[in-house]
Nucleic acid binder design. Structure first.
Lengths: 183, 183
DNA sequence: AATTTTATTGAACATATGTACAATAAAATT
DNA sequence: AATTTTATTGTACATATGTTCAATAAAATT
């Protein structure tokens, strides 16, 4: 890849992080961001449509980190819905680690795209868990079940965010497990 | 209330509905909307901060309709989690009825505020259901449980939207009920 | 090292944004 | 019906947006 492109992305990303310490995402203008990144405003449009695109790209990296945290330590052949407790806590660890970004993701003024990024990543992780477990469901029913369960977890995350991350990940995970086991 | 204010809101709302038939919400500019509504652009700023504000106000009315649909026909003293089947279908009926608006709500380019409007309305409806049912939970646990269950339902709605409302409300409700009863 | 490719720049332009303020007109109040 | 209140208008201004295009500079290729 062309070095110039890489540099431009890096400068924009860096400038965005600086500005996010001063103001909220939707108060940042393209002109301002480009000025700080010391790139021509026209150059910005060669790579992004708007300021959100820069954050979206950055958030992708964060969400990749979440994905990776589920790949490493576990034996995927040994998935068990009764035993997912030790695995699911990673979600809460992850969100707490990057909570300053998740505050933005759950901010009512930002576009839904970050939410959906998180959703689709979590959903594919959830899909891994149910693989092989014959749940006696059609593909369509499974589709809806996955969206149901994935979004339920995000519901907890949103509430956690609204409560200013009041409880430790361990407690959050215990809550989640009790809700899953509940009837 | 001042008649002029009412008229201004009406004209903006009407103009927005016209423009939404041509283009998507975030392509509509304040200037364009004000021109079509035949109000001065400065007047717009006296009432709204941006175009989304107009849609938000309109969507509030839709969400009020959802709330009302749960108030009327049922005996609230007789709530029963095993018997909520006939009541929950109203959600799906409602969303299908206004599906052209819910397409906007679930559009990744729009702000999260509409999602949250829906969320909080549904959540307060859900709260009604669990009132009185001693679930052996602390207030905090109930808080998180409500967000968990409410967002799970919205997860189904989002999937339904993504699937272009492929299934009838009746089937969607059966799916939901099977997931709730599932362990 | 010379050449080719292409990302970046700077300038220009029409339009949009956000704000301010005095003048006007349409409501509400007396 | 006269008066008061206030929403709306028109104008102006600085800044931002989104696009175009030729000139430049930096990278990749030979």
């Amino acid at each position: 890849m062309d070095l110039r492109i890489i540099k431009t992305h890096e400068r924009l990303q860096q400038a965005l992080l600086i500005l996010l310490k001063e103001k909220s995402l939707n108060e940042i203008s393209i002109a301002e961001l480009s000025r700080l990144a010391k790139i021509n405003r026209g150059t910005f449009y060669l790579h992004y449509k708007n300021v959100h695109g820069v954050f979206e790209r950055y958030f992708s990296e964060i969400v990749e980190d979440l994905k990776r945290s589920f790949e490493l330590p576990y034996d995927l052949t040994n998935h068990n819905i009764e035993q997912l407790q030790p695995e699911m806590i990673q979600i809460f660890d992850h969100v707490q680690k990057y909570n300053s970004f998740y505050r933005i993701v759950f901010d009512e003024k930002v576009p839904l795209i970050y939410y959906k990024q998180l959703f689709h990543t979590l959903r594919s992780i959830m899909k891994e868990f149910v693989q092989g477990h014959s749940l006696n469901l059609t593909d369509l029913q499974l589709d809806y079940l996955l969206s149901y369960q994935t979004n339920a977890i995000i519901g907890i995350l949103m509430q956690w965010d609204e409560n200013d991350y009041d409880l430790p990940p361990q407690t959050m995970n215990e809550f989640l497990m009790s809700y899953i086991r509940m009837k």
